[in-house]
Design a binder for these strands. Structure first.
Lengths: 330, 330
DNA sequence: GAGCAAACTGGTAACGTTTCCAAAGCTAAC
DNA sequence: GTTAGCTTTGGAAACGTTACCAGTTTGCTC
């Protein structure tokens, strides 16, 4: 920058003003500075800039997700990136893989880089360690899962409602014995979906048969095995509700291999790519990761712009997509 | 940091030494500094650190992809993130959406943040604008597509070979009229796959019938329409080769709706989630985005560690996965 | 043509670190 | 008891930028 100033015969202050498009610099000098920048192909150093800058902004936010390559997380990531780009902000992203220690490490790493804001899909249940960041004024928004022991904005799927409506859809088609597959109960979303399943059955005067329920099932393969176990009950369930994408595909695989995919109904929570091409197609309660990501980004940037109003808790509804598997009658 | 130094009754230099775990600071002082850091819950500022630091490293790399939410790109991104994490490095990622202008903007934005290295899946064909970054010593690795007018490391899929083997698989099953769907010819990978198709046919003494070939097809829906057109030829092709994931699903949709999915063979380039659950399953030439991402990351970090040897050009082979659709005989 | 405000320009001190160099303390050998 | 050499410590400059304040020029009014 000093070189640019020297070449353009101006002060570094003026160069800084030109670069930041501040008003009050004559066109004549601006052109001269521009030419010098071009000639030396000078690259502005945002790192140094943010160090001195009054607001300390470095044009970067941090996004902490469960697993970046998961379609749900990836769509959310993309929505955030897209919104951030309109504000000239770049995104640092990382995966947690349900590891609580990693959550703290990754957020510490982001804090060390002085990100302007954070979007967090937490792995643990206690985010009180974030008090310091919060106190020092770092804006943050939680997505998909709410923070624990900590007050902050969040954007969540309506898990309870979605689960109830999904199970209700099966009941409306005449089912009375509905099996359930769910992820780790320690994951808030999984617990809520499980709760929705139980509530909806109870609301219809149907007792929950725990032999038809498998929680803490991780991944597609174990879901396949669990499904076989559930189906081996006598009398067997006539329908299944799967509380997560991979569990849905696992259940579908089990049904297929048993030749029951046209006999036993299936509804899954969270949409699945290509689910419409299957025979039957898989009926799901679709989440809307793109909307969630956009909502989280909007909220975050509003906070970054100085909004200090009380915490906002945004709930994104699910959408029933009927494709066949959920409309099979007993 | 000054506060920490004051509280521990040492100089800032000593604090810096403790933080960076430099040798030559007595245990007594180290403990005192550690306690002060704890008490004030001081957070190291990597931004300022990298500004002064001799090597200028900020612990951040940039990753530029076509579309972050695409499964292929997301898996690659994840592989890079995973490797980077072992080195304490975070990843800034962005999507280009085939926009050449955006490529330059995004890379400029990353350069302004002084990333330690770059992984690039280029949208344009001329990367000579990167000369300056290269000259200033920023390590960079290209993935999936080679750089144009510019020498650099790259990690590519063996597109020509994969395409030839895919088409060869169809020919081995007795097909002589094989249709082709491809993405924009301006995209290097698409052009190579198209070339592979033609070469393989020619090698088997089969002339290319251009009525069976549709290039520059973008997206699943247009692929579906294009497939119908190809199939309307007389005599109709008995097999199809689709040069990209979305084109494969589009072709499959068309075959399904025409009731031909058990009659006309289909092989796609790039794997598709849940392709095994379809009836018939879709045979593909699978790419290996995770390996590519890891290879790119390894290469990049080797360069960042000071390796100045000549450019490396790594080629990752494809893998044939037979699932039924590609084994249909004419 | 004088006076005054507005517009423009520049010098210098920060921002929070690390690096460099010098000083102080200690040990061991003569 | 002195000196040499090592280890430990600290002071101050520097990294590339922006903020602050002061200085200069310009344009306008009377």
């Amino acid at each position: 920058m000093r070189d640019v100033a020297a070449l353009a015969h101006v002060s570094v202050t003026t160069v800084s003003r030109v670069i930041n498009e501040e008003p009050g610099v004559s066109a004549r000098l601006a052109v001269r500075v521009g030419a010098a920048i071009e000639q030396l192909n000078y690259r502005h150093n945002l790192t140094a800039s943010s160090l001195r800058r009054a607001d300390g902004r470095g044009g970067t936010i941090g996004v902490v997700l469960e697993y970046i390559a998961d379609p749900f997380d990836a769509l959310m990531h993309r929505a955030i990136e897209e919104y951030a780009l309109t504000r000239g902000v770049l995104v640092l992203a990382g995966s947690l893989l349900e590891d609580e220690a990693r959550e703290r490490e990754l957020i510490a790493a982001l804090a060390a880089r002085r990100v302007d804001g954070l979007v967090i899909m937490p792995a643990g249940h206690d985010q009180s360690y974030l008090m310091n960041e919060r106190r020092s004024g770092t804006p943050m928004v939680f997505v998909d899962r709410p923070p624990g022991f900590f007050d902050a904005d969040d954007v969540l799927t309506d898990n309870l409602d979605g689960s109830r409506r999904g199970v209700g859809h099966l009941l409306a088609h005449g089912h009375r014995r509905v099996g359930y597959l769910g992820d780790l109960q320690t994951i808030t979303t999984a617990a809520l979906r499980h709760q929705g399943y139980r509530e909806e059955l109870t609301a219809h005067g149907i007792g929950v048969d725990d032999r038809l329920v498998r929680t803490d099932v991780r991944g597609s393969e174990r879901a396949e095995a669990a499904t076989r176990e559930i189906l081996s009950n006598k009398p067997a369930p006539t329908a299944l509700f799967a509380g997560q994408g991979p569990l849905t595909t696992g259940a579908y695989r089990a049904l297929r291999s048993l030749g029951l995919h046209h006999k036993v109904a299936l509804v899954g929570f969270d949409d699945i790519p290509l689910a419409d091409l299957l025979e039957p197609g898989i009926t799901v309660m679709a989440q809307d990761p793109a909307s969630m990501g956009r909502a989280a980004a909007e909220l975050l940037f509003r906070r970054m712009d100085g909004d200090r109003s009380p915490s906002v808790h945004q709930v994104i509804p699910t959408r029933l997509i009927t494709r066949g598997s959920g409309e099979i009658r007993p």
